[in-house]
Design a protein around this nucleic acid. Structure first.
Lengths: 122, 122
DNA sequence: CTGTATCCAACATGATACTG
DNA sequence: CAGTATCATGTTGGATACAG
């Protein structure tokens, strides 16, 4: 009684490059999205909670989020408001799967740590 | 009427390195997990649906999944069964957030593509 | 305030060939 | 069958300094 073999074309349509957004973009992307959850934010505002990121890297992350239509960058005429980053509807829709992933990680964090600790390289 | 500032310690506990598993590991990790959904598989079996991956890269991916306790590698005494990779309970629990992310991507795939197409580099 | 410009280190991916 | 070794390339992340 063997299991049926895996079809060779299992991931032709849903291939890894296709899956890239599943990985929630780059290192900071998910964090940026959550920072924007409460409304538009300025560049310098985002650097506060993400205090380990350099401006270059934050810019990169924001540009990619913009490119993928998750974030909208707005340069206001009124200098008081400056430049603001906000979630697009698409970006907002991504908060849900993101929250599910966060919940999973929070719930199983200890197990992940334990596993890494007990693992000894081959 | 301004929004409250983002707290500087928002991600001290849930920092990006912490968030790494959210990104579902490396390029092939999510695909490997889904391949194991139906039960244990052999190394060479996994290469069939992931036919673009070289043995080295598949090994890397499997080792990392093993290290994080998501996958269990078993060398059977019976040579008929050889080496099998299977989901651990932890790995199995990850299928759920993974499925949510997949569903989101499937639903919004066109929007993502459109956004990329329309985007013109700054 | 909102970024750019360099330069550099680390890591991820992959092609190819080889081994017990 | 189940990998390992080598080499090459590309992508990320980041430190530092500077600019409009």
């Amino acid at each position: 009684m063997t299991r049926p073999p895996l079809p060779p074309d299992l991931f032709d349509e849903l291939c890894p490059s296709t899956l890239l957004p599943f990985r929630f973009g780059d290192k900071w992307a998910a964090l940026v999205l959550r920072c924007l959850e409460g409304g538009p934010r300025r560049f310098s505002e985002l650097r506060v909670p993400l205090h380990r990121v350099t401006p270059k890297v934050l810019t990169q992350s924001l540009r990619r989020l913009e490119r993928d239509g998750l974030v909208v960058r707005t340069v206001h005429a009124d200098p008081k408001r400056g430049v603001e980053y906000a979630l697009s509807p698409l970006g907002r829709s991504m908060l849900e799967p993101l929250a599910v992933a966060c919940a999973w990680a929070a719930e199983h964090w200890d197990e992940l740590l334990d596993a890494r600790e007990q693992y000894t390289a081959p």
